[in-house]
């Protein structure tokens, strides 16, 4: 079959769609669902701009076919943003100027949140390592690492 019917959850909403087999998950959410917060950069897994969460784990949506996400729970930057889950991280990015053009930012936020969920108090080297698969061509990374570190510290102070 060159097309397939898939049923999945996207940001908590049930979605059913007919998709071409070759369609990747990034293009599916962008073009068929209108969720354009997921960015498409290199399309071969190098840049990290298309990072999403599938069943709670971060993945490259340019290296995942939409048919492979059949039956899965997909979360995009819109989901993480609208739920307020990463509001503090987003604020820290803004305050610390951790973005300029913003192209990499959705992927950076999702990847950074993934680290913070696993590791409440990461070292700067651990932040850099976890973000190593996400390219930013504006900031030089320093401000991004600062923002993630600041968010980790602030969350730890939270009761």
């Amino acid at each position: 079959m060159t097309t397939a019917r898939i049923a999945l959850m996207v940001n908590g909403e049930k979605i059913s769609a007919e998709v071409p087999a070759r369609l990747n998950l990034a293009d599916f959410v962008r073009d068929q669902l209108g969720l354009t917060g997921t960015h498409v950069g290199c399309e071969h897994g190098v840049c990290g701009a298309c990072t999403m969460r599938v069943n709670g784990e971060i993945i490259r949506s340019c290296l995942t076919l939409a048919v492979q996400a059949d039956g899965c729970a997909v979360e995009t930057i819109e989901g993480l943003s609208d739920s307020g889950e990463i509001a503090d991280l987003q604020a820290a990015f803004r305050e610390r100027n951790a973005l300029q053009c913003g192209y990499c930012t959705p992927g950076m936020l999702i990847t950074a949140q993934d680290l913070l969920l696993k590791h409440a108090d990461p070292e700067r080297t651990e932040i850099r390592e976890h973000l190593s698969g996400n390219y930013c061509r504006c900031t030089g990374y320093h401000a991004i690492v600062d923002a993630v570190e600041r968010t980790a510290k602030a969350r730890q102070r939270r009761p």
Binding site: G45, T51, R60, T64, D114, H130, G133
Partner: peptide
């Protein structure tokens, strides 16, 4: 081997 998002799949 690659990055966390790739190692997950």
């Amino acid at each position: 081997v690659a990055h966390p998002a790739i190692r997950n799949r």
